[in-house]
Simulated scan of single mutants.
Amino acid sequence: MRIGSLGIKIGMTQIFDIEKNIAIPITLIKVGPSIVTHIKTKEKDGYDAIQLGFGFILNNESSTYTKTNKPEKGHLQRSNVNSCSYLCEYRVQNSEEYSIGQIIDVGMFETGQFVDVIGKSIGKGFCGTVKRYNFGRGPMSHGSKNHRAPGSIGAGSTPGRVYPGKRMAGRKGGTQTTIKNLQIIKIHSEESVVAVHGAIPGKSGNLVNLVPSYKNYK
């Protein structure tokens, strides 16, 4: 049961550790702020959880954002939100500790903490077996007709079909990916930016989900 926050990947850079004389690759993530839009309780829903909204616009703010439909607007009215870009649910130990309309910002994280980052990996499009699964290629000499071909895909009359899950050409990337145990190197509270050690899924501008890692509790 780990409450996290949604954010946007800004990009990668590096910082230098003068004492160890090394360069540390980091990824900058703009985290939150998020607003509590819904609370689930064990008595009513069977479990305790809160729903956070990211990219929200309050009712007292003017906006031309038209993506939110009428059912979503009715759902967000209780939290004084006019529209919201993304919603995400997190399990909690006790939902009574939170209230509708409460703001969750970057202050929930701390330097040195380990987090898991969930995001959508970069799509590579339709790829062959060499790029998709690191297959070896055939001879490149003159006369060979098997440079990057996948080769045989199965037996003949027995079984007379291709087994499910056969590694063949197809779409690569563009799937949900989780990178675990990334340490927070620095936090810029004024800009709501978190710097984590290493790379995270997706390209710059992608939506990511940061949740505390189980490594913090070992």
Score class of each variant (00 low, 15 high):
residue 72 E to M: 15
residue 8 I to Q: 11
residue 117 V to P: 00
residue 28 L to W: 12
residue 69 N to Y: 11
residue 115 V to G: 01
residue 97 E to C: 08
residue 11 G to P: 02
residue 84 C to K: 00
residue 71 P to L: 08
residue 25 P to W: 06
residue 108 M to Y: 05
residue 120 K to P: 07
residue 119 G to E: 00
residue 218 K to E: 15
residue 99 S to H: 11
residue 47 Y to P: 03
residue 168 M to E: 09
residue 171 R to W: 15
residue 7 G to S: 04
residue 33 P to I: 00
residue 12 M to K: 13
residue 91 R to S: 08
residue 45 D to Q: 11
residue 84 C to S: 02
residue 167 R to M: 15
residue 180 K to S: 13
residue 122 I to M: 11
residue 75 H to W: 13
residue 73 K to G: 06
residue 162 V to P: 01
residue 114 F to N: 05
residue 152 S to Y: 14
residue 127 C to I: 07
residue 30 K to C: 03
residue 162 V to A: 06
residue 30 K to N: 07
residue 190 E to R: 13
residue 62 S to Y: 14
residue 81 V to Y: 06
residue 113 Q to T: 04
residue 65 Y to I: 11
residue 160 G to K: 01
residue 99 S to M: 15
residue 132 R to H: 03
residue 217 Y to M: 07
residue 99 S to V: 10
residue 36 V to W: 00
residue 189 S to C: 07
residue 140 M to A: 09
residue 218 K to G: 11
residue 41 T to N: 07
residue 3 I to Y: 15
residue 98 Y to H: 08
residue 26 I to T: 00
residue 65 Y to H: 07
residue 122 I to N: 08
residue 164 P to Y: 12
residue 143 G to H: 03
residue 88 C to L: 08
residue 200 I to F: 02
residue 67 K to I: 09
residue 101 G to S: 02
residue 108 M to C: 06
residue 207 L to H: 07
residue 20 K to N: 13
residue 190 E to M: 07
residue 67 K to F: 09
residue 35 I to R: 02
residue 212 P to Q: 01
residue 181 N to R: 11
residue 59 N to Q: 14
residue 177 T to Y: 15
residue 189 S to H: 12
residue 96 E to Y: 13
residue 52 L to M: 01
residue 116 D to P: 02
residue 186 K to C: 08
residue 133 Y to F: 14
residue 44 K to G: 04
residue 101 G to R: 05
residue 83 S to L: 03
residue 187 I to M: 05
residue 206 N to F: 15
residue 173 G to Y: 03
residue 3 I to P: 10
residue 86 Y to H: 14
residue 180 K to R: 14
residue 87 L to V: 08
residue 193 V to C: 05
residue 154 G to C: 01
residue 159 P to Q: 00
residue 56 F to K: 04
residue 156 G to V: 13
residue 74 G to S: 10
residue 204 S to W: 13
residue 10 I to K: 10
residue 137 R to P: 07
residue 36 V to R: 03
residue 192 S to D: 13
